[in-house]
């Protein structure tokens, strides 16, 4: 049986349903991200696990115990907030020791645990400082240490990186993941940043409108999105409307270019999607579909060059690595493009 179970969770605020029939099973030690746009209900799910919101319907179980109606301070669930939420009147060490003190741990035990936690987050010498004397990244590491100090059964992270600047965000996310793996703590991470979700998670739950759209590994989510929302929300996407030319064998045509989908389709038009990195300039091994197009957009992004052209009525963007000794394409240049029909995503 899985460690954290969310069973048919529902939450309404007045007449608006924020979370609808949400089911999720998380294994012990797993890192699961709830990913979605703002207002999709991901934070509400997290707050229900923490006990800050009571579900209108459904059950929450941690390690087999039903906690649905327990108060937040009885759940032993650690939480890290976007705004750090360090206690401004306490030092770093006192912040980390807060939960232990509440539990009635002795002074020596507290001191040992605080030292252990501060070394875990790399802030050994910061114990006597006050939160206002720390940078955002340091404050969030203290918040993490504080949440972990009481050895919670589940760690909840509510957009912990959103308030930080880009560089620290990347380094701290690696650090959080590393600590999570080392402690083997079951973690639920809420984010609207797909890159964070893809890079950190064992599994991702993509949410929209209070409903889980897809649950899967980052690779599954990215490569075989379950529906149009997931495909468009995670990563960049070129969407093409294709004419079905042979429904039985699944052949479609986009602006005169024939693609074989390899499975029967209904007649009419179907929406197809292609990731920018699935298309290459010129022929490439395994690419069975090619077309010629005029370059109508070039964005130089450093390691990657994003090139735009048209396929049928739609603009397609493709990403190609910037290689030394090769000039980026010029606007107006006519080039050959190719992609593999295997990489084409059929949107339902």
């Amino acid at each position: 049986m899985s460690f954290l179970q969310l069973d048919q969770l529902r939450k309404s605020f007045g007449a608006t349903q924020v979370v609808r029939n949400f089911d999720l099973e998380i294994e012990q030690g797993e890192f699961v991200s709830l990913l979605g746009p703002s207002g999709c209900g991901k934070t509400t799910v997290l707050r229900m696990i923490a006990g800050f919101e009571a579900p209108s319907h459904g059950a929450i179980r941690v390690g087999g115990d039903e906690v649905t109606h327990k108060r937040p301070n009885q759940r032993n669930v650690g939480m890290v907030f976007q705004s750090y939420a360090l206690f401004p009147n306490l030092t770093v060490a006192q912040n980390v020791a807060f939960g232990l003190r509440v539990k009635g741990a002795g002074k020596a035990q507290r001191a040992a645990r605080v030292a252990e936690m501060l070394s875990l987050v790399g802030l050994v010498d910061f114990g006597n400082r006050y939160p206002f004397q720390l940078s955002g990244g340091q404050q969030q590491r203290v918040a993490l240490a504080r949440a972990l100090a009481v050895q919670p059964r589940v760690l909840l992270l509510d957009e912990p990186l959103s308030a930080l600047d880009a560089k620290i965000r990347v380094s701290l996310r690696e650090e959080i993941r590393e600590i999570q793996k080392r402690l083997g703590i079951t973690t639920v991470f809420v984010t609207h940043d797909q890159e964070e979700a893809l890079s950190m998670s064992d599994r991702i739950v993509v949410m929209n409108g209070g409903v889980a759209q897809q649950v899967g590994t980052p690779h599954e989510i990215y490569s075989s999105p379950a529906n149009r929302f997931v495909a468009e929300f995670v990563g960049r996407l070129n969407v093409l409307d294709a004419e079905v030319t042979d429904p039985a064998t699944g052949r479609v045509s986009v602006g005169g270019t024939e693609i074989s989908m390899g499975r029967p389709l209904g007649a009419g038009t179907v929406p197809l999607a292609l990731r920018p990195e699935a298309i290459s300039l010129g022929p490439a091994p395994g690419h069975d579909v090619s077309f010629r197009g005029t370059v109508d957009e070039v964005q130089f992004l450093g390691s990657v060059i994003r090139v735009g052209t048209r396929l049928g009525a739609a603009q397609v963007l493709l990403d190609t690595f910037n290689r030394t000794g090769r000039k980026p394409p010029r606007l107006g240049e006519e080039l050959e493009f190719s992609f593999s029909s295997v990489g084409v995503i059929l949107l339902d």
């Binding site: 301070n73 032993n76 907030f81 939420a85 009481v150």
Partner: peptide
């Protein structure tokens, strides 16, 4: 001047009454 709500929740999640 303080974020009453979040501080309260942070303390609650640490077991405080």
């Amino acid at each position: 001047t303080i974020d009453v709500r979040t501080l309260t929740e942070a303390a609650q999640s640490l077991g405080a009454g």
